[in-house]
């Protein structure tokens, strides 16, 4: 890969959670334009993925705000700085070049050439939960899938969908018309999903177009790569053998540190060590803010991440413009800042 194909950036932020979004604002005030990469398909990170409707009570100035509202507000606050988002991407590799800049690559083949990297990845990247069955790794990519990227791939398959949430039901409904056979396995009669989807699913069951089994995954049967059936444990304790060649488990997402673990940074228990002046990692030019960092006295609060973003931005400016004087200004009084914010 040559760096010509790469997107040239001042700063690349990893993670579009609240702290990553506020970093756009703080860096923006100092004229540092940001590209933001997130594995999810929307901004907000944990706030919108895990608890969009749950109220948060410890954001200064907001006695009560939901995860979704906080994320929406931060997007609005960052908007004047025209950040470029790259959703559905996970940063895989980082290479420091001889001139001190970094070449970054995502799993979907997007490249960045940047001087500053801000890791605001919270608990890591969200990845599908992998059911704990021996040998499941061998089936992954051949007959076990955690996402549907191309529906055609599932045409004429004997599909078993496991889980009872919206993803499980949506894909059961969407894949039913093209599948040879479709079954749904869920641990109980009730579903925590859109009522409309549940109704449609039950109608398919009634007309014999979808097999619904109450139970939980027990074991995978096949040659280690291709499934021939799945054994489930029924509510009554008896085994149920489900004929299928494809398994789609939908048990939500979990956070994994992911490729960052291999970047040679000073880590402890999946946290990245930083100093408390610049919030810089052991690698100059790579900063870490929010839940992902660690330092003496660290508190995993959104407000701590906001503070860290502000100090990080000062340090990033000095790194990008070593010869320029940084004049500290307030948004309440500085006409320069107000122009950048588009309010003057």
């Amino acid at each position: 890969m040559t760096s010509e194909k790469a997107i040239k950036a001042d700063a690349v932020i990893i993670g579009a959670g609240p702290v990553g979004l506020f970093a756009i604002f703080q860096l923006g005030l100092l004229d540092i334009k940001c590209h933001v990469v997130d594995i999810l398909d929307k901004p907000g990170g944990q706030c919108t993925e895990l608890y969009p409707e749950k109220p948060i009570y410890d954001i200064p100035g907001f006695p009560e705000i939901s995860g979704q509202e906080l994320s929406d507000n931060l997007m609005q606050q960052a908007a004047p700085f025209s950040p470029v988002f790259h959703f559905g991407n996970m940063l895989e590799s980082v290479d420091r070049r001889a001139d001190g800049r970094f070449l970054l690559q995502t799993d979907r083949g997007v490249f960045f050439d940047t001087r500053v990297i801000v890791i605001a990845a919270g608990g890591g990247s969200f990845q599908p939960k992998r059911p704990p069955y021996r040998g499941i790794e061998g089936y992954e990519g051949h007959s076990v899938f955690y996402a549907v990227r191309q529906m055609e791939k599932f045409r004429d398959k004997k599909i078993l969908i496991a889980g009872g949430g919206d993803s499980a039901l949506d894909w059961a409904l969407n894949l039913q018309p093209i599948a040879k056979k479709i079954s749904l396995l869920h641990r109980r009669e009730e579903f925590r999903a859109n009522m409309d989807s549940v109704g449609k699913m039950r109608a398919l069951v009634e007309t014999g177009k979808l097999d619904f089994h109450i139970g939980q995954l027990k074991s995978l049967n096949g040659d280690g790569k291709y499934l021939s059936s799945v054994t489930a444990l029924g509510r009554d304790g008896a085994d149920i053998e489900i004929d299928c060649d494809t398994l789609l488990p939908f048990f939500g997402l979990t956070m994994k540190l992911g490729p960052i673990a291999g970047w040679g940074l000073n880590l402890n228990q999946n946290l990245v060590y930083v100093d408390t002046e610049k919030f810089q990692t052991s690698e100059a030019g790579i900063f870490a803010i929010g839940d992902i960092n660690s330092y003496p006295g660290k508190l995993k609060l959104i407000l701590s991440g906001f503070h860290e973003a502000a100090l990080m931005a000062q340090a990033a400016f000095r790194l990008l413009h070593p010869d320029e004087r940084l004049v500290f200004q307030y948004t309440t009084s500085s006409s320069k800042l107000q122009k950048k914010l588009g309010v003057l």
């Binding site: 704990p132 949430g165 641990r187 109980r188 048990f251």
Partner: peptide
């Protein structure tokens, strides 16, 4: 909580 347990394994 019962709803959330749908996302756990071996319930």
């Amino acid at each position: 909580e019962e709803d959330m347990l749908d996302f756990a394994f071996g319930v």
